[in-house]
C-alpha cells in the first residue's frame, strides 16, 4: 500500500511549463479579458467562482503532491481568511488588497497550527484531524456569522445586509473576474516559485525519506510547517476573493463536507499538474451550474456528480489532467521524459 508515492512526471512537466512563461502570461491575459466579451453575466459569475476555487485546489494539490499530506479543511481555511478579510474591511476600512493579505496571513497561521499534528501523523489520520477542524469551524461560524458591519469583536449584527467593498480597480463583475484570474495566477506562480527553489528541493527530499532529508541537513519540521503555511495563505486569499465576489459571506457556504468535496475534486482534476487545479474548480463550480442551467434537477445532479466522482477516482490515478497529458503525448507523439506510465 504505497500508493502515495509521487508519480515521476512532475519535474519534466515543470520544465516545460517554465520554458513557456511568455505563453503563460498571454494565456492568463486571455483568460482574464476574453470571457467577458463572449459570455453572459451568469457565466462570468460562475467563472469568477472557478478562478477562486482554482487557487484553493492548487493549494490543496501542493500539500498532496509535495508532501503526500491531505487537508480536508481548506474550505474552512477559506472561511477563516474570509472572516478576517471582512472584519478588517468593516472594522478599519482598509483597501481590499490589505484585507486579502491579512486574510491570507491569518489562514497561514491556522495552517501552521494544523502542521503541528502533521509533524507526527500522515495519511488518513492527519486527514481526519483536519476534517475535525473543518467540522468545528462550520459550527462556530454558524453561531458567530461573518462580519457584516456590526459592532463588537465579531463584527456581526442582525441588520440589513452589509456589503464589503471590492478592490478599487475592479468594482464591476467584469473587472472583478479579471482581478480574480490575475490573483489566482500570481498565487500559482508563488507555488511554482517555491517548487523550483530551495523549498521544492527540501520537500522532494522529505517526500522520499524524512531520514535522508534530515541527514542531508534539511530542517524537516520547518519545511513541513512552511508548506502548510503557504497552502493556508493561498486558501485564505481565495477566501477573501470569495467574500469580494459576493461582497459578503454566509456561514452556509462552509459545511465540513465541502472541504472533503474540494479535496476529492482536486484529486480527480489531477494534483500533479497545474491544469488539474483548474479542472477541479471547474468540476466544483462550472459543472453544477451547467447542470442547473440545462434544467437538470438538483437531486439528479447529485447522483450524476457522486457517480462521476467515484468513477474518476477509480479509473484515473493521476486525475483528468494526467489523462489529458497522456492523450496529448500520444496525439503528438512527443515523449517528454517520464511521461510514460
Amino acid at each position: 500500500m504505497m500508493a502515495s508515492d509521487p508519480p515521476v512526471v512532475s519535474t519534466p512537466a515543470l520544465a516545460v511549463w517554465r520554458s513557456r512563461s511568455i505563453g503563460l502570461l498571454l494565456l492568463v491575459a486571455a483568460l482574464a479579458f476574453l470571457p467577458p466579451l463572449l459570455l453572459a453575466s451568469l457565466w462570468l459569475k460562475v467563472l469568477t467562482g472557478v478562478a477562486i476555487y482554482t487557487l484553493t485546489a492548487a493549494a490543496i494539490a501542493l500539500l498532496y503532491r509535495r508532501l503526500g499530506l491531505v487537508s480536508l479543511a481548506h474550505v474552512a481555511l477559506m472561511g477563516a481568511g474570509g472572516w478576517v478579510g471582512l472584519r478588517l474591511a468593516y472594522g478599519l476600512g482598509t483597501p481590499f488588497e490589505v484585507n486579502m493579505l491579512a486574510g491570507g496571513i491569518a489562514a497561514a497561521g491556522l495552517g501552521m497550527v494544523f502542521a503541528y499534528p502533521a509533524l507526527r501523523m500522515r495519511g488518513l489520520y492527519l486527514a481526519l484531524v483536519t476534517l475535525m477542524i473543518a467540522g468545528a469551524f462550520a459550527i462556530i461560524v454558524n453561531v458567530l456569522q461573518f462580519p457584516n458591519g456590526g459592532g463588537g469583536w465579531s463584527g456581526f449584527a442582525v441588520k440589513s445586509a452589509g456589503y464589503m467593498p471590492r478592490p478599487a480597480i475592479a468594482t464591476s463583475d467584469v473587472g472583478y473576474y479579471a482581478y480574480c484570474v490575475v490573483v489566482t495566477a500570481l498565487g500559482m506562480a508563488l507555488i511554482h516559485w517555491h517548487e523550483i527553489g530551495k523549498a521544492g528541493r527540501a520537500w522532494a527530499l522529505i517526500r522520499r525519506s524524512e531520514a535522508a532529508a534530515m541527514s542531508s541537513g534539511v530542517d524537516v519540521p520547518f519545511y513541513k510547517v512552511w508548506a502548510f503555511a503557504l497552502s493556508g495563505f493561498l486558501a485564505g486569499i481565495a477566501g477573501v476573493l470569495l467574500a469580494g465576489n459576493l461582497q459578503m459571506l454566509d456561514a452556509r457556504s462552509f459545511p465540513a463536507a465541502e472541504s472533503v468535496m474540494i479535496f476529492a475534486l482536486t484529486i480527480v482534476g489531477g494534483a500533479w499538474n497545474p491544469v488539474g487545479a483548474l479542472i477541479a474548480a471547474a468540476l466544483y463550480r462550472l459543472v453544477p451550474a451547467l447542470l442547473n442551467d440545462f434544467g437538470v434537477n438538483g437531486d439528479a445532479a447529485y447522483i450524476i456528480f457522486g457517480a462521476a466522482l467515484i468513477h474518476a477516482l477509480a479509473t484515473a490515478p493521476r486525475g483528468i489532467a494526467g489523462q489529458l497529458e497522456d492523450l496529448a503525448s500520444r496525439l503528438f507523439g512527443r515523449s517528454n521524459g517520464g511521461n510514460t506510465r
Binding site: L124, A127, A257, V260, M261, F263, A264, I267, D299, A300, A301, Y302, I303, F305, G306, A307, A308, L309, I310, L313, A314
Partner: peptide, 13 residues
C-alpha cells in the same frame, strides 16, 4: 474514503 463521499452524494440525491 473520499470516494465513499461520492457514494453518499448519490444516495442523498
Amino acid at each position: 474514503a473520499v470516494a465513499t463521499l461520492g457514494f453518499a452524494l448519490c444516495l442523498l440525491g
